[in-house]
Design a binder for these strands. Structure first.
Lengths: 252, 252
DNA sequence: AAGTGGTCTAGACCACTAG
DNA sequence: TAGTGGTCTAGACCACTTC
């Protein structure tokens, strides 16, 4: 049987499953389906888009691989939420000597509003002097300060965010972005350098000035590679390390 | 039509495409198909394994995602080779200020045989005192030394490797492993720390003692997560950075 | 024109989850 | 038992490469 192009997805030129994927992406980015929500069943989606179920599956496969969706056999397909264990550590790469990831304890030492400086504007794709919120956190592992985070986010994306709300969260920061503002962090882009501790940086991390620290400049991105957060971290790697793995899982 | 389990792939319990994938993996790991070789066509594989072509495609999809295979439309499916541009930089993460990756210039300053110390034995999964080859390289970017690599590989895996062969290569080290010894590096596992330059380390990198350096401990793995190389790198990040991105590519 | 991988369909059955 | 995603099949047609 021939396959006339379905009406529900007009613009041609790219594969049908890409069209479907784009439509699903749109729905999530717009908040039509929120974190934790179940999507319509695959057969329902196939009917709605006028394509075969296999085509829907291929689109969903891509979004699952990307981390935007989550399948649960026998139940349904869900918008990934940053509060489950699996995603909790997806963007947290500091491990102890034994290689284990521990839950960090967060202390917010600064929360202020200001205007983007050159670095922040460039990283966040904002005009210079756009309003931003700046947060400084100290993260401790086993009651010892290990990470100093300086976070900058566009104020326009986080209306009404206060220090109380921010420090009151009982979850990761990305979960806060997601649950309260519908912003799903999907990708991060990081640049790492070695630097020397100095000034309040050294003081907050309780290391001597001149001690080596790992500096991480991270931009967090949501759908369509839109930047939502710029974060400058310094890590005391005396007892911890940044762990990274390249290439996919094996089985064989 | 029902689907009786095909005879060519007896052991049940896991999906057919996993079986197919395992068989293909085996073929590559054993060297039956070497880097750059074309696999049989998908329909030929389907016939050989007694499965539908869609099942073969799913298995091949996984290996392509893993980086072991490479499709070229209209031509065939090939065993990925470390000498093409795409893979060349897959495991090289040092970028300049502008974010660009440059081709490093390699100078080998040491090549010797010895026996595994504790760290090497643990990283490579070898018994203590197993024979290893140790290589020290200085990598320069724009004629300035930036990276100091100390590489340890199990001598048993690289029979007949000499300094001449090693330095005579006109490609990446991983390409040498692959082309001469049939070892495909598929995955790396890295731990990063900030350290202070000292001794010959500082001298070779032309930095002052006490300068901050990025230390990378990398284990390179081949099929079945078998370790093939342990590498201790120190990077002068004054003018360069380690770049890392988490989460897949977008389109939408 | 022939052969390859790339897309898409339609439908069967299995495995898991819930009421 | 009913409904979900997971696997598998068989075959059509498209896009690209090569001769």
């Amino acid at each position: 049987m021939p396959s006339p192009r379905p009406a529900a997805l007009s613009p041609p030129g790219r594969p049908l499953y890409e069209e479907v994927r784009a439509h699903l992406t749109e729905g999530i980015a717009e908040g039509r389906w929120k974190a934790g929500d179940a999507l319509p069943t695959e057969s329902a989606l196939a009917a709605r888009f006028g394509v075969a179920i296999g085509t829907v599956r291929k689109a969903v496969d891509a979004l699952v691989a990307q981390g935007a969706l989550l399948r649960r056999q026998g139940k349904g397909t869900y918008v990934a939420a940053h509060d489950d264990r699996r995603l909790m550590f997806h963007f947290f790469h500091i491990v102890g000597a034994g290689g284990e990831k521990a839950q960090p304890e967060v202390r917010t030492v600064r929360f202020e509003r200001g205007r983007a400086d050159a670095a922040e504007a460039a990283a966040l794709g904002l005009p210079r002097d756009e309003r931003v919120i700046r947060i400084r956190n100290v993260l401790s592992l086993a009651s010892r300060p290990v990470i100093l985070d300086d976070i900058a986010i566009p104020a326009a994306l986080f209306p009404g965010l206060t220090e109380r709300i921010f420090t009151g969260r009982d979850n990761t920061i990305y979960h806060l972005y997601q649950s309260r503002y519908g912003i799903n962090v999907l990708r991060t882009d990081e640049h790492l350098r070695a630097v020397l501790a100095a000034g309040d940086m050294a003081q907050l991390l309780q290391v001597a000035p001149g001690a080596p620290l790992l500096e991480i400049r991270r931009v967090a991105l949501t759908f369509r590679d839109r930047p939502v957060e710029y974060r400058l971290s310094r890590v005391n790697t005396a007892a911890h390390a940044y762990h990274n793995t390249f290439g996919k899982g094996e089985a064989a």
